[in-house]
Design a protein around this nucleic acid. Structure first.
Lengths: 221, 221
DNA sequence: CTTCGACGACGAGGATGCGCATGGCTGGTT
DNA sequence: AACCAGCCATGCGCATCCTCGTCGTCGAAG
């Protein structure tokens, strides 16, 4: 597993490299945004949002465009706005300075675990089918009986996850983990809302069953 | 087939090892509870409940937590209380000292026969079968003679546990431990209620026997 | 046969989890 | 600068499920 560290502070960077290499990763380090975009491909990018030569968010968006790379942002304490912007721009997770090695490694492993299936499937087929429903990951398009559907981002991610495990029950926890990163604790009706939206747009054609107390399951109608 | 013998008495242990090895089993022996839990995985554990360094029942419960291992308890004559407690804690069978080699081998084979299907299926697909009953863990679906059944959450968990150990007695305590975590103390008719619901939905086709004072056992009708 | 303990049947009460509608917020768009 | 689509939080209503008490019944032991 290769990790790219984008960090301008030499001291911080050196500590990171030592810890990560010690954990068995292959690590490269760059200090500028330009170098980050030019660096060899990695599986995970540790991105400091406080870079000198460019807005870290631009780097993040560009990295996000390249499929299959996971991004963890690094921000200084208190810069909550930066963190949120990072997540919205597509970061998979974040850590706040100062952070411990154990926490960082845990988050790296969690992100890798989350993105493994996505990465594996994105390298092989990239298109899912379930009866009259066809889902193309590359173009993020959905057709139902050859009629294109217009889904929002969350709706697409949610449907892709469910169709990817069609026939099996997908727990609410897992859905929140994958579609929304950072599993929030507070019970919320947000997931239900998106499920309802999907049911509305899919009409019949695909059934989304509720498994009370567990999660959801999609089956061919 | 690997057998783990947990026995502190050297003389008894030596006799067991000889007999079991002669019967063609691969046998390991430990003399303490701690060593038992640290030992390499086995298919059957012969557990002496009269251990010096810990309550044998604790060992039993921990072993039971590891799927696919069968446990036969060994107790001294007359310690009826121990035997019942052992069964309640999830033992598959028991022998009473002093016992003959023939009886022991017969019980081991019987236990292995009972648990084979459960072990094999748990390692391959996660779907359980018992005669006309098919239970799929991933989709949480149940069919009886190809007719889908609608079970509630507790009902499904309960049935899965029972079918997973089909043919063996599953103690009430163990059921409460697994299906409801945190064993409640107050005697309550909750478990009976769910058993009754299952019996109603399964009709014939599957028998759920009551073992008074111990637990339940499911068998093909 | 009697007695005792455990289980089965049943029926509320309460708890839980979900669907849905609404309103505020934010980032992107024209 | 104003607008708008998408997203998230909240609250209420409802259906379902779980729980638990009581009583009747049955099996086992003496």
């Amino acid at each position: 597993m290769r990790i790219l560290v984008v960090e301008d502070d030499d001291r911080v960077a050196r500590g990171l490299l030592t810890a990560l290499r010690h954990a068995g990763y292959e690590v490269h380090r760059v200090g500028t945004a330009a170098a980050a975009l030019a660096a060899p491909p990695a599986d995970v990018v540790l991105l400091d949002l406080g870079l000198p030569d460019a807005d870290g968010l631009d780097v993040l968006r560009e990295l996000r465009r390249r499929q299959g790379v996971a991004v963890i942002t690094v921000t200084a304490r208190g810069e909550e706005r930066e963190r949120v912007l990072g997540l919205r721009a597509g970061a998979d997770d974040y850590v706040v300075k100062p952070f411990g090695t154990a926490e960082l490694l845990a988050r790296i492993e969690a992100v890798l675990r989350r993105t493994r299936t996505a990465r594996a499937s994105s390298e092989s087929s990239r298109s899912l089918e379930l009866g009259p429903l066809v889902l193309d990951a590359a173009s993020r398009t959905v057709t139902l009986r050859d009629v294109p559907l217009s889904l929002t981002r969350k709706e697409f991610d949610l449907l892709a996850l469910l169709v990817g495990r069609a026939g099996a029950v997908v727990s609410r926890d897992l859905i929140v983990d994958q579609v929304w990163q950072s599993h929030w604790e507070a019970p919320s009706r947000t997931l239900d809302t998106h499920i309802a939206a999907l049911r509305g747009k899919l009409g019949d054609g695909v059934r989304i069953e509720t498994i009370r107390g567990v999660g959801y399951r999609v089956t061919e109608a």
